[in-house]
Amino acid sequence: MKIVAICGAGIGSSGILKVNAERVLDRLGFEADVTAAHVGSLASDAADAQIILTSAEFVDVIGATNADVIVIENYFDTDELTRKLEAALG
């Protein structure tokens, strides 16, 4: 399972998403490779990702993809992250 967190810089906000996604996945008992990337390197970094975590602003920029795109509103709310990741992981 590969998950990519996307923001404009590839540091900062996507880093927080990565760190919190890892914590949630660990709690849920899922093995996943979570990376943080900036939207400019999306094509190479997220080509084989199953899930993309990001903000609403990047959905259009990300465009068509085979990955599930999950939009997170509050990056510090691990309950929101848990709920949305659980839904995507089925």
Partner: peptide, 21 residues
Amino acid sequence: MIEQYGPYVVIAPGLALAHAR
């Protein structure tokens, strides 16, 4: 960064995490 991509840096209610590369 915000002009280009929008207000995504507002990552939680009441908090902006401004940053660049």
